[in-house]
Nucleic acid binder design. Sequence first.
RNA 1: GCCGGAGUGGCGGAAUGGUAUACGCGAACGACUCAAAAUCGUUUGUCGAAAGGCGUGAGGGUUCGAGUCCCUCCUCCGGCACCA
Length: 963
Amino acid sequence: MKSYDHKKIEKKWQERWDTESAYRAEDDSSKPKDYLLIEFPYPSGDGLHVGHVRSYTAMDVIARKRRAQGRNVLYPIGWDAFGLPTENYALKTGKDPRIVTKENSDNFRRQIKSLGLSFDWSREINTTDPSYYKWTQWIFLQLYKKGLAYKAKTLINWCPKDKIGLANEEVIDGKCERCGTLVVKREKEQWMMAITKYAQRLYDDLDLVDYIERAKTQQRNWIGPSEGAEIEFAIKDSKEKIKVFTTRPDTLYGATYLVLAPEHRIIATLCASQTCTNRTEVDGYVKSALNLAEIERTIEGKEKTGVELKGVKAINPASKEEIPIYVADYVLGGYGTGAIMAVPAHDERDYAFAKKFNIPMKRVIEPIFRDSPTSPAKPDLPMEKRDAVCVIVRDPADNAYLCIQWKGDDHMHGLVTGGIEAGEDLVEAAKREVAEETGYKNLRRSRDSDFAVHSLFFHRKKMINRWARFRYVFLELENEERNLVDEKEAALHEVVWKRRDELNNFFSVIEGEFILNFIDNPDYIYTGEGILANSGEFDGLDSQDAKKKITKFVGGKIVTTFKLRDWVFSRQRYWGEPIPMIYCEKDGWVAVPEDQLPVLLPEVEKYQPTDTGESPLANIHEWVNTICPTCGGSAKRETDVMPNWAGSSWYYLRYTDPSNDKEFAAQENLKYWLTPASPSRSSKSEGGVDWYNGGMEHTVLHLLYSRFWHKFLFDQGLVPTPEPYMKRTSHGLILAEDGSKMSKSKGNTVSPDVLVENVGADALRLYEMFLGPFDQPVSWNSNGVVGMRRFLERVADLAVNDETKLEPALETLLHQTIKKVTEDIENLKLNTALSSLMILLNECEKTDSISTEVHETFLKLLAPFAPHLTHELWEQSGHDTELRLEPWPVADERKLKGTTAHIAIQINGKTRGEMEAPIDADKTVVENLAREAVAKYLEGKTVSRVIVVPNRLVNFVLTDTNS
RNA sequence: GCCGGAGUGGCGGAAUGGUAUACGCGAACGACUCAAAAUCGUUUGUCGAAAGGCGUGAGGGUUCGAGUCCCUCCUCCGGCACCA
């Protein structure tokens, strides 16, 4: 048989598995279980392409293998119909999204079944089913009852052209995804989820789970905790206070103004006060700032804008100085307290703003350099402090800098430096040092700079430890006139002029890099930590110490702030679970009673959003108008619906009990599927879906939202584990052949249907797995599929003979392959698992026929990858059992090693020969064999050392005799 | 800018600090064929006639031995970004 009939074989087996519901998992607590999950497919009307299939196939391989290992595997599939693609597709085609959803899921079901994936179809769920709506709404109500769902005014992304609110994922580069119009912010009252209350736990508990590092990092960045202090600034002649958040309370003395975000509530109050003189101007600024298109507001390098609240002053609580208050959009309303203390000397943004508005700056932090690499301080000697000056002398004639090169062993390279005498003027001291060390006498100050730097080092000439506080003076050479340098000085060092580019590698002092920074950049400001100055009683402390002390001094509070914001849960569209809330004039917001759930979407003529920005549901009066559950009076339903994330936040729970009408899932089912099979490794870290695989695009928001809901349900005692997913992996995208992303709009998709038709599902599955490392993106190459087809044909052609005896060499390889395939599948190294199967096949083909034992083992190992053909071959070789029910092969440890080892022989690490030696032979035996094999290289040489790595190599190290 | 990840033949890629390029694709040659396709066999990093050099983004280091570990740099990809 040169070619097998994949269509016939695949049809036969797919029918058999479908009718028997072959892969149904049991809620049987006596069996060890595995709960494998993949993310919903995203039905968008475009159908699956080969990129979608990769994840399903990989998890299918794992599921099949684990079933064969006797585990009860739950590998469910469902349909998330809330994806934006569905709605956009429906809008584009004018179809009812519910019909689109139905068509899509039918199509996807057909496509997925054609691949022979072993999903448990008995647990299929669809998040648009009324029964699913019901429990999503029920969970919402639990959150509402605990105060975690609340209504608040927020700014939403607003597309001025389409007149609709946009979800974050519909905004690309600040523009509306559909029409490209710049998005603006608009205030709207929306339902919110207090996810920030869980921020710390969502952050900390990442340590309990086994996610790919990338996913963890992204979660951490998104939650973005930062430690700092909240400090209150009093307002002059007012009882109002402004609370700011800062990570640098050590710079408080340098805070020369405050900035409020345009959204800040206090602006209105302050404007209304008697003293404020530019109320209208401020009003105008706030309005325009809030209306600014998002992209304009965040554009890089955008000139800072803002307006001063004239006539209103704040008091710096540390220095007691009066400082101005500004409103500026470079401060974000949603982060921290929406107000900052601006320290222009130590923050680049504040500096840029202060420069534009001519606000004075005050340096309060001086960098410190310890542990000089060339001359570190000696810990046993005392430290001597000194005020010193470091002079940057530039010769404008040839743009060169005056440098000092010390004579002697250490070759110190630096600038002119020296001590400042008591009472001496800084610039005078600088000029004096230049004159003493170099003789130049006509200099003028060229730049106003009062940088100071602390440097700790061992002074070799004076044999003392020195803590020098260098102050920097910029001088310019007026002319070349110079005096003779004192002989003693001249003996110590010489004077050299260095061009700017020569300075890069010139300085040997540790602060060299730092000096170059502010030579190059007159606007250089230091944003790091250091030693405090100009800070009253805190002068001389280091930043770390000062942070705590200054915060305490001004009555501030150490707090952790998060980047994470509360979750905007409302959507103004047709498509989504209605938020089950009713508004009554008398009773306010009232929850829909649980026995009235689910609240379903009404039939509508048009499901396009309305012009007013309200949900299309707002126009359906018979649906909106209802009765208040509390007072029985007339009331209105909430017309906002939930985001697509809602249903997908808990779907893994529903799979455990998909048709339950009494609760979202029975506790015993949750307990069985979520708690680990072997409660051993660590204490509370375990539990949740055993293995969750999905695309990288869902590792931030979806993962975060579902973790939040899960933690909430855990707190209510409704789920048994604190985390929803134990292990999370992510597949790399499959890119088009040119390396670009596959998408229908680009027309570069490759449909699995075509490949299933032409080469069969098995060959396609194999190639999906063989393409490359599972977690990395790979480019699709249609030529590669034929290799997999060839491989399968050769498998089908294997000659099997009962009489054939198992050769020892083949037996060794067989067991090595069992081990390799078993391990590689668990580690998702499916490409190398397959390659080892190919190696085994290559070896099998070298003999006339193989034994039944080899053949059967081979089929078992290949079965998870290519289920159809392997099952067929199994049946053809006379078995009346099904291959998938056969136990997984186990490698015999004793047979993993052959009788001989192939050993490399190296001379000085270079391979010079190779040989066969008995396995695990004695070192001296191997060494002697190796000596014979490379005798010609060893002749006349002295072997100083021999390294023998058992069963791998022998390395002779020769001493270098007159080579 | 910050945080991740990755740079290996013509291509996808393999390699617990131990013979770099397994496995597959492609290509060349040969066999079969009237012929082509398919299939089978051989070859396939590079320089060299050979011996032997040289080779895993660049440069250093550790080591008997480095694709792998350490330092510096370059390039590409992904995420975040006025987060105080």
